[in-house]
Amino acid sequence: MSTLDTLASKLADDTIEAMKITGEERLFVEVGELIGASSQTLEEAYLTEIRIRLADRAARKFLATKVAAAKRTASAPPSA
C-alpha cells in the first residue's frame, strides 16, 4: 500500500470515528476541504475512502433491516 493510500485510509477511519462521537455527519466534507487546500491528490484519495466506508455502512444497515424483517415474518404466527 502506498503512503497516499495509507494516509487516506487512516484519516478516513479517524474521521468516521469522530463523526460518530460528535454527531456531525458532514464532518468529512470539512476535513476534505482542509486537505484539498494543500493536496488535491490526498483529498481525492481520502474522499474515495470516505465514500467506500459510508456506502458500506448504508449497505450493512439495509441488509440488517431486511434480515430482521424476514426473521419477524418467519417467526410470526400464521394468520387464520
Results as ranks from 00 to 15, higher is better:
residue 71 K to D: 02
residue 49 E to V: 00
residue 70 A to E: 02
residue 78 P to W: 13
residue 57 R to T: 07
residue 26 R to N: 15
residue 69 A to N: 09
residue 22 T to E: 11
residue 1 M to V: 04
residue 38 S to V: 07
residue 13 D to E: 09
residue 2 S to I: 12
residue 43 E to T: 00
residue 12 A to Q: 02
residue 29 V to F: 10
residue 76 A to C: 11
residue 49 E to P: 01
residue 38 S to F: 10
residue 74 A to Y: 15
residue 2 S to V: 14
residue 65 T to M: 11
residue 29 V to A: 13
residue 26 R to L: 06
residue 45 A to R: 05
residue 9 S to W: 14
residue 67 V to D: 00
residue 73 T to Q: 09
residue 64 A to P: 01
residue 14 D to H: 13
residue 20 K to V: 08
residue 66 K to L: 13
residue 27 L to A: 11
residue 6 T to Q: 09
residue 21 I to Q: 07
residue 51 R to I: 02
residue 2 S to T: 10
residue 66 K to R: 14
residue 37 A to S: 15
residue 31 V to E: 01
residue 51 R to H: 03
residue 18 A to W: 13
residue 71 K to P: 02
residue 15 T to R: 11
residue 56 D to C: 08
residue 43 E to W: 02
residue 52 I to E: 07
residue 40 Q to N: 06
residue 20 K to Y: 15
residue 60 R to W: 04
residue 34 L to A: 15
residue 68 A to S: 08
residue 1 M to F: 12
residue 55 A to V: 07
residue 75 S to R: 13
residue 28 F to H: 10
residue 74 A to R: 15
residue 22 T to R: 12
residue 50 I to F: 00
residue 66 K to D: 02
residue 77 P to F: 03
residue 72 R to A: 12
residue 65 T to G: 08
residue 57 R to W: 11
residue 10 K to R: 08
residue 62 F to G: 06
residue 5 D to E: 12
residue 36 G to V: 04
residue 73 T to M: 13
residue 66 K to M: 10
residue 7 L to V: 14
residue 16 I to R: 05
residue 59 A to G: 06
residue 4 L to V: 14
residue 56 D to L: 13
residue 9 S to V: 13
residue 54 L to I: 09
residue 49 E to W: 02
residue 77 P to N: 08
residue 35 I to K: 05
residue 71 K to C: 01
residue 36 G to K: 10
residue 13 D to Y: 09
residue 33 E to G: 05
residue 41 T to N: 03
residue 32 G to S: 11
residue 16 I to E: 12
residue 73 T to D: 09
residue 23 G to P: 00
residue 42 L to N: 03
residue 37 A to G: 14
residue 55 A to G: 06
residue 30 E to S: 09
residue 34 L to K: 08
residue 76 A to L: 07
residue 22 T to Q: 10
residue 55 A to L: 14
residue 78 P to A: 13
residue 8 A to H: 01
residue 41 T to D: 08
residue 33 E to F: 12
residue 28 F to K: 04
residue 58 A to N: 05
residue 30 E to P: 01
residue 32 G to W: 08
residue 8 A to V: 02
residue 72 R to F: 12
residue 28 F to G: 03
residue 8 A to F: 02
residue 34 L to G: 10
residue 9 S to N: 10
residue 5 D to P: 04
residue 35 I to F: 06
residue 47 L to F: 02
residue 5 D to F: 12
residue 58 A to R: 06
residue 6 T to P: 00
residue 74 A to L: 15
residue 42 L to R: 05
residue 5 D to Y: 10
residue 16 I to W: 03
residue 77 P to H: 07
residue 70 A to P: 01
residue 21 I to S: 10
residue 32 G to I: 11
residue 46 Y to A: 00
residue 79 S to D: 14
residue 42 L to K: 03
residue 66 K to P: 02
residue 36 G to N: 05
residue 50 I to L: 01
